[in-house]
Design a binder for these strands. Structure first.
Lengths: 163, 163
DNA sequence: CTGTCCTTGACTTATACTGACCAAAACTAT
DNA sequence: ATAGTTTTGGTCAGTATAAGTCAAGGACAG
């Protein structure tokens, strides 16, 4: 709510959103160079927009190719299994969550058929991997690992629009 | 803001894909010279297409013979079981993998219907999260992030073979 | 004043395509 | 048989193009 609301990033974000709405397929292809030119900025500004607004944790996939005939493709994954009544899972996760609590939550999600067994597996692998790295590589305290676990879990849930 | 023209490579790729679909055997033979002529390019362009689109990591084998009655044969691989495929994939990931390479591999997996879009999304969130943490929290060097990325990716791929 | 978000540009990496030169298989005339 | 010719495909390096990365600095809310 300031001049920020008219920031270039926001303008470009809205432009891409509009393209996504128009293209019914939920995806759109564009040229980084052209976009940058259209909005009078450097090309890397586009990367910033993609990174900060169209990230996987926001439910987007971005594919791109460099070189001749290069492009950037933005894909919006929209999932309608997000029941309005469902509590906000991110609230359940909170700032910190133990390994046990996380696992219980994931079992729950699978029982409610909000994730497939394969999806749950991937999530568990990712969580455990982070945990191990934190413990053995970076000497992260147990509580801080709970914080990081919560962060990762929330990002994933958000990406699946289960947030 | 639509893309200019489809690249020659893509056009030739699609042509070969079509031939593969028509010939149910999962393989097709052709003449490099004829193909080049058909698409109005130099013969080595065909090699480029084969190298970049019909490589083993895309699930293809290419055999060829020079000289009179020479030919190029493109064979679509099918793995008898998931484990084999995962071993193959883990080899492709190797010890280190860049963000770009990882993304390409994931796109590939999805195109071959070995993962769903949702699964891919979760994986990308996990990779990206690890990257962010490595960069901003633990000051991990770019190359070491490539190592860690490869580790995580392999763990996930392996887990999927069991699911 | 401070931390966060935004913006920029120099530098790096990846892809498409071409053409000159190389290698091998088959044919042909001795 | 053998050597030379013809017919194919392979390789590699160069050129053009386009996207990615990173870090330094700017703008702004609190």
């Amino acid at each position: 709510m300031s001049l920020q609301s008219s920031s270039l990033t926001k303008i470009i974000e809205e432009y891409i959103d509009r393209l996504l709405e128009e293209n019914q397929a939920g995806e759109v292809s564009l040229r980084r160079k052209d976009l940058a030119e259209k909005f009078g900025c450097v090309p890397s500004q586009i990367n910033y927009v993609l990174r900060s607004r169209f990230a996987p944790e926001n439910g987007f996939l971005v594919e791109s190719q460099r070189g001749g005939h290069g492009y950037i493709k933005i894909i919006q994954l929209t999932f309608s299994n997000c029941d309005e009544e469902v509590v906000h899972l991110s609230d359940l996760v909170g700032n910190a969550i133990t390994e046990q609590e996380a696992r219980k939550l994931l079992v729950n999600l699978q029982n409610r058929e909000m994730t497939t067994p394969r999806e749950r597996l991937i999530i568990e692998v990712a969580l455990r991997n982070q945990d191990e790295n934190g413990r053995s590589l970076f000497d992260v305290s147990p509580y801080r690992r709970d914080l990081m676990r919560a962060e990762l879990l929330k990002k994933i849930l958000t990406s699946l629009s289960l947030g």
